[in-house]
Nucleic acid binder design. Structure first.
Lengths: 226, 226
DNA sequence: GTCTATACATAGATAGAC
DNA sequence: GTCTATCTATGTATAGAC
């Protein structure tokens, strides 16, 4: 599967995402016309991600957001009741999509080696297709409330566990060498995150997503091979 | 060399660091008594790092800082002329110390394999000894002015180049396999950074710094080995 | 549903007494 | 060298007209 195939398969269009956000937040959003809501949510999240990823969420004023999104301040507050709620909505949706996509991508695969490759690839592809969301989620997690921070941490641990279990299965089935793998999943996560955290670096050096994916897979497999 | 040896060798005490900051900023700091300055700078940076690493630099108010540092707001402004300058001072000092320590630690070593190991170890040890500084520098780099951001990027590239050149030398001298190493240094950096960015994770799992260092060295060497 | 106008709080920064 | 008091700008959030 290429990156283009991936984008077609998983529905990560802005409208799609905003429709899901609406579903999960009917109580918080005051406006009732579904079409209108989705339309405006796209504007709001686009603007929020753009401003925040440039100058930080706490430096983004609602006035700035209003201007960039093309909605008045009053109108904005019909879609969220305060700034923190806006932050939470984006974070929650990011987690939800990650979990779902990863699950559907690797669920059916049996061979642990193939499964590991696809898990790495899917993770990178998804973070590429939704780069602003992933960057935002990582960087702004610190601005969440204590309870929401716990959810972010749980999500990180969760996706790490997915990798760990694939590797353990690979060892059990004799595909990988028997060795201490405590730190493999954590550093693998770090490598995957670096792709969207340091986009500037890889762009500048003209590294494609497939080159990066191949490298990470190769790197990990060398370590796990007997 | 153990972590304890390292801390004794390189002078990374708060006073030491603040004395260096004073040297580089005599023009910006209005107070003249050297002893007093160092004493207060320690309080100011301690408080800044503590508050910022918890809730972000932009969410830290000068009032909060004043309270935590035990100095009035008026007094604070004798040590920096505005909040951004405070940010820059910390960042500049972090870069300077990193560069210097890394250089002195690996400078004299000849064998590329030994050099690579020491570079990884020193980098981790330093980031451990100065964890709040490193965390702050990474996270708050985005709040710097465009010119200062360029310096931060240059510093990242610079330390990456150190690793790259050691590895190239290792290949030339026949210690490592001849293969494409374009992405080795970037992901190595990502792994080193993860240690101070996700302190909570490694602490919780009781991973020691030496365990982590050994793993990263092993991981990289497996990949580079013929 | 969306706007404008505004209330109210809190931010960064400084002046002038001590 | 340090403090308190205060200025001014800007922040979030809402009320009420359209």
């Amino acid at each position: 599967m290429t990156f283009e195939d991936f984008k077609r398969m998983v529905s990560v269009s802005k409208e799609e995402i905003c429709r899901k956000i609406l579903e999960g937040n009917r109580d918080k959003i005051k406006v009732k016309k579904e079409k209108k809501v989705v339309e405006n949510l796209v504007k709001i999240f686009d603007a929020t991600l753009e401003i925040s990823n440039r100058e930080g969420f706490s430096n983004m004023t609602v006035r700035n957001l209003s201007k960039k999104a093309g909605l008045s301040m009053g109108a904005l507050y019909s879609y969220f009741s305060n700034k923190d709620e806006l932050l939470e909505m984006i974070q929650a949706q990011g987690r939800e999509i990650s979990r779902r996509v990863l699950e559907t991508q690797i669920g059916p695969i049996d061979d642990p080696r193939e499964k590991l490759r696809r898990a790495i690839q899917s993770h990178l592809y998804l973070s590429e297709a939704m780069q602003p969301w992933f960057y935002f989620s990582y960087i702004e997690a610190r601005n969440l409330s204590k309870t929401e921070q716990k959810k972010a941490i749980a999500s990180e641990i969760d996706s790490e566990t997915v990798f760990l279990e694939i590797i353990e299965e690979g060892i059990r089935r004799g595909f990988y060498a028997v060795k201490d793998i405590t730190l493999v999943a954590p550093v693998l996560k770090a490598m995957l995150q670096d792709w969207y955290l340091k986009r500037w670096k890889y762009k500048q050096r003209k590294i494609t997503i497939d080159q990066y994916a191949d490298f990470v897979v190769d790197f990990i497999e060398q370590y796990l091979s007997k």
